[in-house]
Design a protein around this nucleic acid. Structure first.
Length: 403
DNA sequence: CACCGTTCAGTTGAACTAAGCAACGGAATTCGG
DNA sequence: GAATTCCGTTGCTTAGTTCAACTGAACGGTGGA
């Protein structure tokens, strides 16, 4: 066969795209300058600056809703700081860890292990060591080089709700055992009330300085989108009003710039798929639906099998009876029979209750504890997912369960 | 009718267990002389 | 006899289990008006 002639990817390669460089719309992208966060960057820089003179900067706590640029600002500022430190010949190391990632940094042991692997080549086994030993290794690495360390702990609230605040206490105390180096912590949290439930000692040392990121308003999001769109799209492919509408979408959602960016990206993809030369307003509506779908499908399909069985049970129960509530007991019964059918080991009701409340936290279910009076208490469970997605989800689950 | 103790079906926290894993140290095996 | 490999033991984390205390309003009985 002649090379390239009938290759199915040729269509894809030759196809014209509205995108020039899609990367700038992805969440991982760090732009050179960050609009409407100059104030926060300046504050953060001021707080961190002392480490350029080998003094320990205060620990910092950053709050703000999702998509208000917390992570971006922290990364950007520390990056600049690192560069400045290099110029000034100051030893400085910045470590970023996202504590939310399930199974990688959601326990004390794993968080420290993550920190260690971020700092160097030292290997920590997944399990088997005493946590104390992991701390020792961590300290050893810190001690090896006398320098300043800045630890960025992203989504720290998620971590503490799972693993407790023990680690934070230990981390804040480490400085006492390290005369030659200093570590400072930047904690990032979406949850404003998070520090209130913290041990007062940790609270005071962790939030020596606090930074609040206000939500962006629609105009600010527009600026952000324009800046990114400049890089992301080809010239003149975006029709008037598109940016504004995407921005409005983000602004409606607690000033969430991330969602607005995502929407713009997905909208562009829709335009591409429709072979449209420009990104039109009507593409947004389609993008808007797709964005939620993608997110939920992503979450669901990455869950383990037992979770799928539970969700599938709930899905079926809801199908059976329209609009009346589903209770934990029913879910468990159906779940058990599903386990038998698929020859999966049956977990206890205790665990299933936990799984249900995890789904609740993920926003896939709505599970509220109610009392049915003399008929006990239970959770009132309902799906939080739009009707139109259910078939798709059902097929994902069925695929995974292998009925 | 208002009040109040009972009751149910889970919830929730804590202690416990099994499965994996790594390190340790002694026993068994290998090796070079 | 020293070096290396093997293997059982110990001690750890973690997901899940077991145990038991707790919960909160509907039910139904009681007494009062």
């Amino acid at each position: 066969m002649e090379r390239g002639k009938d290759n199915i990817f040729d269509i894809f390669l030759r196809k014209e795209s509205v995108f020039f460089n899609k990367k700038s719309l992805q969440t991982s992208f760090t732009p050179i300058n960050i609009p409407h966060r100059q104030e926060q960057i300046k504050q953060l820089a001021n707080i961190l600056a002392p480490c350029l003179k080998n003094e320990k900067p205060s620990n910092i706590f950053i709050y703000g809703y999702t998509g208000t640029g917390k992570t971006l600002t922290a990364k950007h500022t520390t990056q600049e700081l690192e560069e400045a430190a290099k110029r000034e010949n100051v030893e400085l190391k910045v470590v970023y860890v996202n504590c939310k990632l399930k199974g990688s940094a959601d326990t004390e042991y794993r968080l420290i292990a993550q920190l260690i692997s971020a700092l160097g080549k030292e290997k920590i086994p997944i399990t088997g060591w005493p946590t104390e030993e992991v701390y020792k290794t961590f300290l050893k690495i810190l001690r090896k080089q006398s320098q300043n360390y800045i630890l960025i702990l992203d989504e720290i609230d998620q971590f503490v709700s799972k693993a407790g605040d023990n680690v934070l206490y230990n981390l804040t105390r480490i400085n006492e055992e390290l005369p030659e180096s200093q570590i400072s912590i930047i904690g990032i949290s979406n949850n404003i009330n998070f520090v209130d439930n913290l041990d007062p000692r940790i609270k005071s040392s962790l939030s020596e300085e606090e930074l609040v990121f206000p939500p962006y308003n629609a105009l600010q999001i527009q600026d952000i989108l324009r800046q990114r769109a400049e890089i992301a799209f080809n010239k003149d492919v975006i029709e008037p009003g598109v940016i504004e509408k995407c921005a409005a979408y983000g602004a409606r959602d607690n000033g969430d710039a991330r969602r607005a960016l995502e929407l713009l990206r997905v909208t562009g993809e829709v335009a591409d798929r429709k072979n449209s030369k420009t990104v039109k307003l009507e593409h947004i509506d389609e993008g808007e639906g797709k964005i939620d779908r993608d997110r939920i499908i992503e979450i669901i399909s990455t869950q383990p099998k037992q979770y799928h069985l539970v969700l599938y049970s709930i899905l079926n129960l809801q199908n059976g009876k329209t609009n009346s509530s589903i209770f934990t007991g029913e879910v468990y019964e159906l779940y058990k029979s599903l386990c038998n059918k698929t020859s999966t080991s049956v977990l206890t009701q205790r665990r299933i209750a936990d799984i249900i409340s995890e789904f609740d936290m993920l926003g896939i279910l709505n599970a509220k504890v109610i009392s049915k009076g003399r008929y006990g208490r239970t959770r009132d469970i309902s799906m939080e997912i739009s009707e139109s997605m259910l078939p798709k989800i059902r097929s994902i689950l069925e695929d995974n369960i292998k009925l």
